[in-house]
Amino acid sequence: MKDPIIVIGLGELGSVFARGFLRLGYPVQGVTRDMDISLVANTTPNPAAVLIAVGEADIATTLATLPTVWKDKVILLQNELLPRDWQAAEINNPTVISVWFEKKKGMDSKVVLPSPIFGANAKLVFNALSQIDLPSFILDTEEELTYELVRKNLYILTTNIAGLEVGGNVESLANQHSAVMNAVANDVLDIQDWLTETKNDRQRLMEGLLEAIHGDLAHGCMGRSAPARLTRAIGFANQAGLDIPTLRDIANKHLSH
């Protein structure tokens, strides 16, 4: 009998991964927000892995309260995730996947790009996704992981925040509003450089952004979390003392103050 896999957060994404793990023959123990996580850790102190599938708004609290016995088994998949997030919770070397498929209620998973994975449990995640026909690939280095996480952040933040200004889908953003897209992207990358404490390769990231846009041209720009993403981005910029003129201009027009 295989050791169980813990899945914290059983929303759309958590359920997709749980199905993949089950098909590989792993028992899955779900943890919902009204369960006592320490009791689960007492009964299952040595799981095969612990997938944290809560939304990005809950990730800091979830990581901070994670039972110590699980900290070396963590798999993370949140948007807007960077190394500083798991380092702050003293989680060393988690397995991380940058999820490039979308799963909404009542619809099948829609793939934009293959999802990159890095870490000790990368093969487990790769195998689970292949069970449910979702393409992924395994990265070799932490540097590549940082690039992939920044690229995903660039895509989400740029399309969401530019979407507040111009609406529409990512095809119209890239083709008809490229000046807005590039100005937003530049501000977003200033913030990402500060958050990662490194000078990221902007040309490669912008090419990566366009590749993702071409992966699903009909993708709507503005998700419902766009205002929260913009507010969070400006909070980071204020901490860093960054100008980010385009983001501030969009916030002045579209956020209620």
Score class of each variant (00 low, 15 high):
residue 3 D to H: 10
residue 8 I to E: 07
residue 12 E to R: 14
residue 14 G to T: 05
residue 16 V to Q: 10
residue 17 F to A: 11
residue 21 F to Q: 13
residue 21 F to D: 11
residue 22 L to Q: 09
residue 27 P to W: 03
residue 37 I to E: 11
residue 41 A to L: 09
residue 47 P to I: 12
residue 48 A to M: 14
residue 53 A to K: 02
residue 56 E to Y: 09
residue 59 I to N: 04
residue 59 I to H: 06
residue 59 I to S: 03
residue 62 T to A: 14
residue 64 A to P: 04
residue 67 P to N: 04
residue 68 T to P: 00
residue 69 V to A: 14
residue 70 W to G: 07
residue 71 K to L: 01
residue 73 K to P: 00
residue 75 I to T: 08
residue 77 L to S: 07
residue 79 N to K: 03
residue 87 Q to K: 15
residue 88 A to R: 15
residue 91 I to F: 10
residue 95 T to Y: 01
residue 95 T to D: 07
residue 97 I to M: 15
residue 107 M to N: 08
residue 108 D to I: 00
residue 110 K to T: 11
residue 111 V to Y: 06
residue 119 G to N: 02
residue 126 F to A: 12
residue 131 Q to I: 01
residue 136 S to P: 05
residue 139 L to C: 05
residue 145 L to T: 12
residue 145 L to R: 05
residue 146 T to L: 13
residue 147 Y to I: 10
residue 148 E to M: 14
residue 150 V to T: 13
residue 154 L to Y: 09
residue 160 N to K: 06
residue 162 A to M: 05
residue 163 G to R: 14
residue 168 G to N: 10
residue 173 L to W: 01
residue 173 L to A: 03
residue 178 S to L: 07
residue 183 A to N: 05
residue 186 N to A: 14
residue 189 L to Y: 00
residue 193 D to H: 08
residue 193 D to S: 10
residue 195 L to Y: 05
residue 199 K to D: 13
residue 199 K to Q: 15
residue 201 D to C: 07
residue 209 L to E: 07
residue 210 L to Y: 09
residue 213 I to E: 11
residue 215 G to P: 06
residue 217 L to D: 02
residue 218 A to D: 11
residue 219 H to F: 09
residue 229 R to A: 03
residue 229 R to T: 05
residue 238 N to C: 08
residue 238 N to G: 01
residue 243 D to G: 00
residue 249 D to S: 10
